[in-house]
Simulated scan of single mutants.
Amino acid sequence: MKLLFLGDVVGRAGRDAVSARLPGLIEKHGFDLVVVNGENASHGRGLTEAHYHDIRSAGADAVTLGDHAFDQRDTLSYIAREEMLVRPINMVPGTPGRGATLVESRGGYRVLVINAQGRVFMNPVDDPFRAVEMAVSACPLGEQADAIVVDFHTEATSEIQAMGHFLDGKVSLVVGTHTHIPTADHRILRGGTALMADAGMCGDFDSVIGVEVDEPLNRFLTGISSGRFTPAEGEATLCGVAIETDPRTGLTSRMFPVRVGGSLSQAEPAFG
């Protein structure tokens, strides 16, 4: 099975790039399933219902969130009914929505998609390790699930790497989101789990992590806020990771970084 994961969609530039480029990537590489992190898609913070449907219409089978999950007011009104929208599983009990969902892929495979939020340099949440462990135990790889994808949304690459080793051999992919910068550490661990510390963003890299340069630069220089962060609107790069899993085990046999369009060096899967 071939799976594609795309990092945080940031603002209009990110949304436009997903709409323009994702359908072609699916057709070119034959992806069975696509997961997209959409937590910065609407004006840089959160995800409106309209923008959620735009990302789904472009080819995303599931959309994950993060610490900005509820920054858009209308999210509370639609998240509970959208089964393919996944917020962090370790938010406090009673939070609307779901932290994991079982998705049927184009080839008829069952893929468990889990979203979790880290605790290092992040707002307080429950233990992500135990929460993810419980979800995986309830829908084990090779039994109820043909593949398992974990989007771990956090600041610290060390926390993401720890999660990868914690789940090695139990899930197909652990990938970090949130920092918006793609890392070069993509690898398959000893037990067969693919790990990448950050998928990067789908956004304009002529920016400061997806926002226009002036305001963040001003805050670094003066320590004073002079306005709101505004998403950059130049040509975006789609950043993420692609994996191919072994149909017998659900573990990863091949893994490739993905960077398409915009100003970064380009990289696409070489499935052959």
Rank of each mutant, 00 (worst) to 15 (best):
V213I: 13
E212M: 00
G99M: 02
G99D: 05
V9Q: 08
E159C: 08
A162G: 09
R106V: 02
G7T: 02
D206Q: 03
C239M: 00
E159P: 13
H165R: 11
P96R: 02
V86G: 13
F5A: 07
E39G: 15
M1T: 08
E143I: 10
T222R: 07
L102M: 10
S158A: 15
R259Q: 04
G66T: 09
V36M: 07
H165V: 06
Y109A: 14
F166S: 11
L6F: 05
P247S: 08
N37W: 09
N115E: 02
E212W: 04
V125D: 03
S77R: 12
E235T: 00
Q266A: 07
G14K: 04
M84K: 14
L47R: 04
G66H: 12
F256S: 10
G272F: 05
M163E: 12
I114C: 13
G7P: 05
V125F: 11
C239N: 05
F220D: 08
G176Y: 05
A145H: 07
R259D: 00
G7K: 06
T177H: 14
V171R: 06
P96N: 05
A50R: 11
V113D: 08
F70E: 10
R130S: 15
C239V: 00
D206N: 08
L85H: 01
F152C: 12
E104Q: 05
H186N: 12
